[in-house]
Amino acid sequence: MLGEGEKTPKRVHSYGFFGVTTLHVKLDEKQLLQELKKGNRLAFEHLVKRYQHRLLSIACGITLDREESLEIVQDVFMRVHQNIHTFRGESSLMSWMRIITVNLSLNWKRKWLRRFRWKHHDIETEDGGILPDAENSGEHETPEAKYIDRQLEQKIMKNIALMPEKMRTVFVLKTVEHLSYEEIAQTLNIKTGTVRSRLHNARQLLAESLNE
């Protein structure tokens, strides 16, 4: 199961990263960036551990494809590794990686491949579909309540899958990352008004589908 990613890295070490062999230290962003630019492997591993959950959630929310999300996140970290020297630190590392993740998830080449996979395999099937597994969810509920929740969840997820990708991307950034309208607008290079209306439309679309 996905854990909650760290959102606010705590600074527990004021000294340098050299000589530290454990990965349990929490570096602040500036220290981490410095070490990444030096090519420090431990720093990179630290970066992966810190952000992979969150990036995976974003990619998965947009693509709704488990296998592809794993590939995308791997690609994101490789791009970070290759381009870290060009990163000026004007935004946070997470903002930068989030933009890369969104762009890769919306990459048209991947969309083509995804469409083909979806065409030939139902989204509910085991190979890549992200609809929740009945056995894994709602362990503490009564069987009846679990069934109702499961049915509702499935219905919602099906309709999320049917949403236009641009709308879903905004919905995912709000729901998974809890970004403000301003942050979403910056990430996607759109206006805050567009974010507001896309989110509202997404919710209305889902609400209408529940009444069908």
């Binding site: 998965c60 992200i130 969840e153």
Partner: peptide, 12 residues
């Protein structure tokens, strides 16, 4: 809707 999406992602 938010709960469903987060749950769907988490359980995958």
């Amino acid at each position: 809707f938010e709960k469903a999406l987060n749950s769907g992602i988490a359980s995958s």
